[in-house]
Design a binder for these strands. Structure first.
Lengths: 231, 231, 231, 231
DNA sequence: GATGAATGAGCCTTCATTCAT
DNA sequence: GATGAATGAAGGCTCATTCAT
């Protein structure tokens, strides 16, 4: 049928190319997570993506471009995720902070594979200014949003703490908890991580956040297992 | 004077070798900070140490061994530093926590060069289990100590918070602040970082820590400049 | 003519690769003969083949693989040569033994270059079981064939000697004569070598082989020179 | 006791040095046999000889010198061995040929380790004229002696064969049988090798050598085992 | 449009050798 | 006299990239 052909055709040229691009980026993420940054070669990437060796250079011009595209993809995915989390209608500032905590430990963005890739890029960032730039731009938007939310909470509750300091503390705590998932996956628990953040929020803003109860020790591992983890 | 000569002489065999070893490790740290993990080659390391290329393999058997030795050196240096900081006589548990915060942002361990190296190793740790092992062993001792200190504070003050959660929150916040120095050096301020940690401690343990006053904005850049930074 | 072009064209993909492979093997033979086994480097091989250094690893995965392929090529070439020599129709068993002697000293397989390569591999064979295996497999077929031929002669002539012993004696004599070409090329003469073998055969099987007459001394060097020698 | 001291002392300087030299040569032989020519390094040699790395260069000036010395040692040992074998008083020319055959397959000179080293040198000889020279000089004496013996036998028995051809045939057969020990140790039998040579001699010189009887199949392996083999 | 043969740069490592001790 | 730290050269191999098909 002409219609079907019409809808199928457009996928062919431009979209097919985009699909391959995304496959290559996904393969790069996998490879960095599995082999590390230093050991990630275009050979491994193309093998993971099941394409020929030279196709990478065809789509990306250089290895560095592929890596930057991968980092951009990561930052964009992360940004989309937390923005969607706080866009739910009817959320107060405190509710949005809570939503951010939930989002930051959601398996979709917080799993060992992706965390490993984040840290791989951060580990190279000092010597590759491009990475730092991409990360900084992404971070600053997140930081600004968080400061606005803490400022709203502080204003609403009349707290004495500086909103900027409170926001930075939370952001850094989250980054550090991600590191724990990377370096000590055996002791990391998704729910415990959230409780750690909420304890911080509750102690700073007692009238806006409840101090979380201690975890039921047995229940936690199951919860984590149910979450699926990564792979 | 013959005596001075006598004391200078003993640098002879074994010590000279050790000196060279340390030079190579130092050069490795510099190279990772400057060129990143992936671009650190034995060529660059030996050039920085002003020794021949093959000397590296004479002392370390393989590049990987050199990297592990470097990581071990780093962890040992860090461990020594914070242990010394809390060993000052007459310190209460809260005082020791304060001392740890000071130590963790002291320019000797917290400067961009060293932080970059830490993150470089962490970034590779998922694919190189040896790094993870070394890091985990070092971390666990630090974590245990910090939990003991928070437990003492909690017990002393009758606080409701879990000592383990409080300790983990602080540790992660510190790691995250280090990351900020790495990724956003322009906005990082040593004193502000300490205040962020102390705000956390004061909000959790109000009877043991004072909520820090806001920074005098003008004073900070000078303080940072005075601290010398890195290079 | 289009037809000729059509027949020339098909050299396209797979064949071109095979041609390069063979060039590399030939270059390896040359290099081992010229520089010896220990001094044969991929650099020298690629230089002889007029290709880039990395092409060798593209075709052979490792130096060892190239060497094994070279040995295999050598054994296959030798096997083909003597099998063709005895396949001429109408040859008796004794005639085939004679043909083998002729083949074994034919310049195509018995020249200093190739003999040097054979001995180079044999010299390394004790420490590289793969070589021994390849050589043994090739040798056993040759040995079995020769035993069958001597057995036929013995049966036909009613000789008392053991066919296996007679065959082994001839084979070893040939190997030893090759060594003489290698170590004392000045005194080696192709025809004299054949006469040495035929003297052995004639003395064992007088009714099947004629005792060769002594060489006309002057004629021999010319004959050898005419044979072209090696290079 | 002064006498003991007197006899012990002289060993110290000159002889001690010579002992080390011999140890190094022995270690070189072992290493070539075990690792092959290409993989024999001074490191391995010195490790086998239980001396420090640089001692080799102290005694031999260069690796090449050590190898040549090793080859010289081998040729000298071989020469001494067969010369002693034919020097027994009362031996006829035929008896001496028989003695040479016995000597050439005596475990002291004909074992896989030494044969491997011989072939290793021969394998390198084309590209290293020094080796060829050493081998040629050693060989020519052996060849000349053998020709004299065959000439005596021919003269004594009135045989028609050329003494030179007969001698060369025997020598080459022996070399080829050595190669069999190297490449097919499983099927090589010391006594069978001697029988192969004696079959040759008996067929050429029936009035001076007895045609050997076929081996008692079961007895042979034991005989070989009794001979000790190598290691 | 995509493949795969081919290249050149560079990396880790080994080795024979030297020199101060 | 003998050791071991140190060197320079070179070797095998990998990798990102190009180009003809």
């Amino acid at each position: 049928m002409p219609q079907r052909a019409a809808t199928a055709q457009p996928l062919k040229r431009a979209e097919k190319k985009e699909v391959t691009r995304q496959q290559l980026i996904a393969a790069t993420v996998d490879s960095i997570a599995a082999s590390g940054f230093a050991e990630t070669t275009l050979h491994k990437v193309s093998a993971r993506a099941n394409v020929s060796r030279s196709l990478v250079n065809f789509h990306f011009e250089s290895k560095e471009q592929l890596l930057v595209a991968t980092l951009r993809h990561l930052t964009e995915e992360y940004r989309t995720f937390w923005m969607k989390a706080i866009s739910r209608p009817g959320l107060s500032a405190a509710g949005k902070l809570n939503a951010i905590v939930d989002a930051d430990f959601h398996p979709q963005v917080c799993n060992r594979k992706k965390i490993a890739v984040w840290y791989a890029f951060w580990g190279e960032s000092k010597s590759r200014p491009t990475y730092m730039e991409v990360c900084a731009r992404a971070d600053s938007e997140f930081a600004r949003t968080m400061e606005e939310l803490t400022a709203a909470v502080v204003g609403d509750g009349g707290y004495a703490v500086s909103p900027a300091v409170a926001a930075k503390g939370l952001r850094c705590m989250i980054d550090g908890l991600w590191l724990e998932l990377l370096l000590a996956p055996a002791t990391f628990e998704r729910e415990a991580a959230k409780r750690t953040c909420r304890t911080y929020l509750a102690s700073l803003f007692p009238r806006h956040f409840d101090m979380p109860a201690a975890a039921a020790p047995a229940a936690v591992p199951e919860a984590q297992a149910a979450a699926g983890g990564e792979r």
